[in-house]
Design a protein around this nucleic acid. Sequence first.
DNA 1: TTGTATGCGTTATCAT
DNA 2: ATGATAACGCATACAA
Lengths: 345, 345
Amino acid sequence: MSRPNHPAKSPTMRDVARLAGVSQPTVSRVLNDTATTVSISEETRQKVLDAVKALGYHPNMTARSLRTQKSQMIALMIADISNGFYHPMARAVQDVARKHNYDVIIANSDHRYDNEKHFLEAVIRRPVDGVIMVVFRLTDEEIDRFITIAQTPIVVLGVQIEHPEVDVVWADDEKATFEAVTWLIEERGYSQVGFLGVPDDYPPGPRRWNGYKRAMEHAGLPIFSDYLYFQGDFTLESGRKAARELMTRQDWPPVMFALNDLMAIGFILELQDAGYNIPDDIAVMGFDDIPEASIIRPHLTTIAQTPVDIGQKLVNTLFDRIEGNRNGPKRILEAPCILTPRQSA
Amino acid sequence: MSRPNHPAKSPTMRDVARLAGVSQPTVSRVLNDTATTVSISEETRQKVLDAVKALGYHPNMTARSLRTQKSQMIALMIADISNGFYHPMARAVQDVARKHNYDVIIANSDHRYDNEKHFLEAVIRRPVDGVIMVVFRLTDEEIDRFITIAQTPIVVLGVQIEHPEVDVVWADDEKATFEAVTWLIEERGYSQVGFLGVPDDYPPGPRRWNGYKRAMEHAGLPIFSDYLYFQGDFTLESGRKAARELMTRQDWPPVMFALNDLMAIGFILELQDAGYNIPDDIAVMGFDDIPEASIIRPHLTTIAQTPVDIGQKLVNTLFDRIEGNRNGPKRILEAPCILTPRQSA
DNA sequence: TTGTATGCGTTATCAT
DNA sequence: ATGATAACGCATACAA
């Protein structure tokens, strides 16, 4: 009884119209009164609203989307759902989207090329009104092709996409890294600095590596290959692996600059598990200031980013385009990097 | 030139049909060959596929959804995007969904009633083929009403929904708490145990509180109100607040059982900031085994859950219903709880 | 102020 | 084996 063989379909505008004794378009007009200039009599408006309530009518977004060519959805691709940096960012995106009456599809690439590619394909199949991506592996060319096909506004975090219509939010991490490493040397007094990074084909890799190199040069310090590690993949586990690798080497730097917090934390944990003391045996600095940076002991010295602000910049820039407030050339917004001294370095 | 005034609409089946010199339904048949029994000549199949490639055609999911009344999307509501427990769970859901060619809409309630309510409304407006929810505030009544309206399969984590068609994945946390507290007393030798919980109207609150009470009774131990705290809200910050509150009291228990890891960690951090030693001044036990439990020093003694397994149970149960493999009465799946001793208690 | 007619891009039911 | 035709639920141009 509570489960009829033909489950009650949800009511449509036709049902409402029939019950209210008006035509279907009239129902549409009542429900979207702002959309049109035509006015409707108070009487029919009430009849319609009563019928809506009586039937428990809810508009069908699929049909509306097909008709209006707008989905009222935006898609957000982040690089790692386990990385605390993206949580406040995603939340900010959702909050703003909700204020605009938009839903958000969140996808997670795990920094992997095939996942990023799949995301583009999914977005092409299911047109959304806008896209926010944290890109690590896609080429400019692929993004170009995507834009041509998808015809949808797109904002990107972290990489410089060379496309006239792709807005970009980014941090000047080359400069931030330069300043941080310089600070380690000049203010904290470290005589050498190691670098824990990722392969060159991840965009932030070369940028931060360049900042490091520039700082070492600026300080007149040589760069020792024994102090370098480039096999990271942004995860905590890869930081642990870097520590295991380092421990096989003869000579350690007094301080290690890690490309992000998650790797810095894995690096510290593995060394501590092996009985070493941070920062006495080796100091560590990270990048991002995720919540775990204030959980680990010693608390992690790092470069803070501002994920809420970044999320808002991303989504506001996107809605500027979606709602047509802006059609001009690409916009480039810079997010701050804040040196955040704690106890690990 | 790269930006015509009338942006190239993406090609439709009609465009493909025209180019291939066939009718539009034929294109549909070629593209969904499994869907129908009719066969198509190899020649037209090739013509169609060529045209598809030439135009870069992608099917429009909105139109398909309207026609088939299936969206190829499922919705997932988690309680806190910042809580590491949900990350592997969400990832597992996404992975399985992708294998079924489904996309996932992720929403985040922050344990708040209005967000949970909004989620239901969003899902009603934008029909999805299935729903997975981590429910904290919605009543059985509201979920009932939702099911009636949405006509969509639904699987819930963590609470016992009294509805014949809502599948449930849950952990026997009453028993797990009982066993953990008993273990603290009998194996670890603590003479008393405190309880750091949440208000009674959050479902896991009473369950774990009952497990605690039962264990105390079983051990013949009195329950001291000075050892209890019920104002938590699952967040790290509320754990810190509990510690500040505790520090104003005259008498501490030797060990505190916290309702989840995030609060346990906040509790520990605040006490450590005030100069106390964990576990000597007070020991702490948590629940969940999130990644941060192995980052904090001392590592957190806790009750591990199995989020990947839970996510898979949720999504597989859901797809069993979506794909019609199962129409019977509700299914109840139990997820394990594993006592995980470390250094904090 | 309201009703009629049309089309968004598919899938599905007829024919042929 | 393929082509007309209709329908999904809605928004909108046009007619009345």
